Structure formats: C-alpha cells, structure tokens
Simulated scan of single mutants.
Amino acid sequence: MNTQENIHYKRIAEAIDYIKANFRDQPHLDEVAEKVHLSPFHFQRLFSEWAGTSPKKFLQYTSLEYAKKLLQENQATLSETAYETGLSGTSRLHDLFVTIEGMTPAEYKNGGRNLTINYSFAESPFGNMLVASTEKGICFMGFAEDEASGFLALKEKFPHAHFSRKLDLIQQSALFIFQNDWSKLSEIKLHLKGTDFQLKVWETLLKIPMGQLSTYGTVANQIEKPNASRAVGTAIGSNPVAFLIPCHRVIQASGALGGYMWGNTRKTAIIGWEGAQINR
C-alpha cells in the first residue's frame, strides 16, 4: 500500500468516526463526504474500492448501535447479529493458521536476552505497521503512527534483545494476509512471550473465523475458565500480534465494542473490512 492509500485509510477512518457519532441521525452520503472533504462521487468510489462494498452496506458492518439493538431488543444471538450485520460466512484462515510457540521461561523472564529480532515497517489497509520476528516466528506485530513510537513499543516487549532492521521471509509470509493470499499462512509460526494462560487465550482467538465475532465470556468458556472473563479481557488486551491474532473479533456481550490496543476506530474498520472481504 502506498502513501496515497494510507491517506485514503485515514479518510475512511474519519468517516467511520463521524457515522458512529451521528448514527441516530442516519447521515446521508453527501453529508459524510463533505465531512471528509471529498465529493460524494469520489467518496462513494473510494469507499467501495477500499472496503469492497458501498458506504451504506459498510455502515451495517460497523454500526455498534445496530448490533446492540439486535442483541438487546430482539434477543438475537451473537451469530445472528453477525449475520444480520453482514458478518456472515467463514474463512479458511482459522483452518490454515499458525502454530504458537511460547518462549522458554528464561527468554520470558529476561526480556529477550540473547534473542536476535529482525523488524521492518510495512503499510496495511489500516495504517503503518511494525512487524518483528525471531528465527522461530513472528514475535510482534503492531500498528505504528511513526517509526520511532513503533520501535519503542517493540523494545518495551523485549528490552534486552538484539535488534536488526531487516525484512525476512517470516515477516513477508505474515504480510501476505492483507493481500488475501492464504497460500503462505500455513507456514507462519508465532514465537510469543506470554504466560500459559495468555498463550491459551491467544490460541483460542485464532479459532474465531474471519468475519465473525465472539465475546469475552465465550472465550473464557472455550478455555474452560467460565469465571475468568475479566482475566481473558486482560490477556486479549496484551496480545502482541495485531490482526494475525484477531483480538479485534472479540466484543462485549452487550454488543459494545470493548477496548482495542490500537484504537477503537481501527477495530471498527477492521471488522467492517473483514466482513466486506468475505462477502465480495
């Protein structure tokens, strides 16, 4: 994705924020287009190119108020809500996906001492990213507003590691996901620093199909810790690998979005984008 496409994402994100803030007024295309300083025609075309669907359909994907109405007033299940908001269907992603390898206790304890970590920056449909890998797999992937803050976030995870700015094959395979190239995903491994509980939660997130949503309580039940919803939320919030481990697919049982390390606007955009991809 080039710089112009990154500008397009920022405009789409601005449009999403405006739609969410003014949902009850049901803003028309012309109104939203004016807010992001585009002509209605250009905005409609840009939105359709970016998301693979119209702004009106995308509003169904991303509208939390709509999801809440289905859940609270109609007593719909989460799967029914996902279907009604356009987030139906399955993906091969969770069938192909990755092996998680936890770091050794020594690696975990000493902040990555003796680890060599390659890292590089890339552009995604949702903004710039930093992706980092050890010889065993992806160890970090996060959205970065700028390179300095992105590297600082990586270094905080592994304060004693040796870092080399280098794009390797492990990173390239992971980034193919944004091109809908599933052929390399079965080769991806994640080399993660986390407790046994965190690793178990992150593994469970990989089983949520693309285009579908789950809740913190559901994840807690799946790891056989039904009373641990809050701890599950904390583990999800500590996820060091954006998008590949899909913590963005977990929302509150009420239909509210819940938190997201990289911002709720981005979470909303990713949910909508995934729904659009599988319904093209």
Rank of each mutant, 00 (worst) to 15 (best):
L199T: 08
S39C: 09
A15H: 03
I138R: 05
A235E: 01
F23L: 09
K35W: 01
P209E: 02
D146F: 01
I188N: 05
G211I: 12
R92F: 04
K20H: 13
D95E: 12
E5C: 02
P125L: 14
Q198V: 07
V131N: 00
Q4Y: 04
N239C: 15
G86C: 06
A253E: 13
L257P: 00
K166G: 00
G211C: 08
S254P: 03
P55V: 14
G112W: 03
H248R: 07
L130C: 04
F43G: 05
R24C: 10
W182V: 09
E65H: 05
T195W: 03
M129V: 15
L70T: 11
K166N: 10
H162G: 05
R165F: 01
I117V: 09
G89L: 11
T265K: 08
V201L: 04
Y119R: 01
T116N: 09
L244F: 04
R45D: 15
Y66C: 06
A256R: 11
L46C: 01
G237A: 14
Q60N: 08
E147I: 09
T77F: 13
I7T: 06
K136E: 15
Q212I: 05
L59H: 08
N2D: 15
G233Q: 08
N239A: 10
Q60V: 11
I170N: 15
W50Y: 09
G86Y: 11
A51T: 11
F163D: 06
L205Q: 10
G150E: 10
R280C: 01
Y260D: 11
A269T: 14
G237H: 06
E145T: 11
L93K: 09
A161L: 02
N74Y: 13
K166Q: 13
R24S: 12
G142F: 02
A220S: 09
L87Q: 07
A148P: 00
D25I: 14
I251C: 10
L167R: 04
T116V: 15
L46E: 04
S79L: 12
E34W: 05
H37I: 06
M1T: 13
S54R: 06
Y108I: 07
F158K: 04
